[in-house]
Design a protein around this nucleic acid. Sequence first.
DNA 1: CTGTTAGCGCGTTCAG
DNA 2: CTGAACGCGCTAACAG
Lengths: 328, 328
Amino acid sequence: MVTARDVAKRAGVSQATVSYVMSGSRPISEATKKRVRKAMDELGYVPNINARSLAGGKVGVIGVLVHMDENTDLAELRPFLVVIMEEARKRGSSVMLVPADEGIEGLCRMVRQGVVDGVLVFDVEWHDERLPEIARLDIPVVLVGTPENAHGLPCVDVDYRRVAQMAVNRLAERGAQRMVLVGDWGRSLDRYAFAKFFASESRVVAQVLGMEYEIFIPREKGWRGIWAMKDELKRMAQCHGGIAVRTPHALDSLLQLCVEMQIQPGRDFSLVAVYVDGHDEELRVPVDNVDPVPQSVSKAAMGLLFDRIDGHKTGERLLVSPHITIRS
Amino acid sequence: MVTARDVAKRAGVSQATVSYVMSGSRPISEATKKRVRKAMDELGYVPNINARSLAGGKVGVIGVLVHMDENTDLAELRPFLVVIMEEARKRGSSVMLVPADEGIEGLCRMVRQGVVDGVLVFDVEWHDERLPEIARLDIPVVLVGTPENAHGLPCVDVDYRRVAQMAVNRLAERGAQRMVLVGDWGRSLDRYAFAKFFASESRVVAQVLGMEYEIFIPREKGWRGIWAMKDELKRMAQCHGGIAVRTPHALDSLLQLCVEMQIQPGRDFSLVAVYVDGHDEELRVPVDNVDPVPQSVSKAAMGLLFDRIDGHKTGERLLVSPHITIRS
DNA sequence: CTGTTAGCGCGTTCAG
DNA sequence: CTGAACGCGCTAACAG
């Protein structure tokens, strides 16, 4: 293993100088900097992360706390993860997945072991019992999502109110007098802020616009849950109502149901769904969508996290604007 | 931070003794062991991973090299990841995702930095140019997949030949005289061993059983690619042929096409798909499936990896048996 | 501007 | 069976 001492020897400086060249925490003359850099290159030097962290430096690892059980859809996590890893790499860090299913002991252990510089917390619930403990951890943390009480932790989320507004407005534009919101199986509306406020805000907007408003929560997982919407769908087709779908899975099933019932979204009723741009390629028909911009959300979250890690206490709360695409 | 020295002080022993109690690398009397353990619990002691690794121990981190770009389906990775993290946790390790899209420099850096004890390599291609370099890394590595030349690295994979045999046999059982293999968009058949051998072996089996054999590779992503099978599907319904589908995505689209064309799988033609048990809940109709048992594969891979990490050089190659479920 | 030195927390000798 | 002492590679405070 090539150590900093080897580099120092080769560059004819002290080992500490090598360290300062890397961290920049002390002014070093251009000449020596260049010599040291050259020596590093020639020897293929890579600083040992463990030694660095032991001596009080950064580890270069970001922890990402996520659910990983059978019911979670890792596909939804993908756009977040892609950006997170990209941003991490830009700053010379790596990403570590921390499963959240067995409580946060794992997280606590990792933090106390000194494996991570900071943590991004996903799947933050509206009433999230983990937060007090996480807040006590005393390392940089950013929540992705919105809890009722953040316990002083910074949050980043998509502006769920605007998501709802955009969706409902679109249905109204298309002339719907009546709308149904299709939720997600197995998750109570009150569990996550996004679902909660999407529902409440869309109800408000619908009311303001004089639309009838209904919520449909599938009682079963997958296709069967949506199948139960059959009658509702027929009704929507008769009155040319509007349907707002909150998850890609539900949308897929709904579209299948439409084919089966020979009902055509866009013609027989209006349809808006919340899904990430790009998912439309999987769809058989164009469906207007509000993109919850996971890329922007995670980018913002990483920005905040690295600010914290670097010692700057910046903003506490960030709401990212979604955007809508008309495809029908 | 609670250190081993603190524990030692409280237990009335030396720091070294604490270390020995943990590693078991030297016999310690039951009495002192108990005292030390108690002190650890009372203080909430967690050994510092960085110090441990610096002193020559393990880091407790497993790297997982995966593709993370727009085209990869993270959902397919989930069953693997779930088991990997479970197995890692059982052995007191954590899991680190290493993106493979920008080459393996990232991996090399991490290994030399000493961040990981071992690496699991996913998305191993048949001709994989990364392998020589990975082999030179000189840390425990296990490949998940099958390359033409493993460069001495151990591999774990599902027995793709048996997958093909099971699928084709099932179609034959159902009386199909003609079969079509539906592949995956955007990936050449020769890129991954699984696709390659699934195709070649199913062709062989079909031939032996006297079936006509055809391969269909979608030319476009998502729904549109499968749409092009329209005529073929009609033909299959006429002669009651069989279709074997290699990916869940293609299966979903195919089922939609069936609804649209009022063709019923199981009645009008026979259908077998490769998908993980559990995905059937998302399906509108029951479809026989060969489960490529990602759980078993990753469990085996982790077993091999930890053997390597612990210094035992065990088996070089492991093929895990798939299993078929008749649902129609 | 640079060199010297003292730890960081743990594993592992070597004396007892 | 135990305890003191050394060193892993690096950062940061202290001296020039």
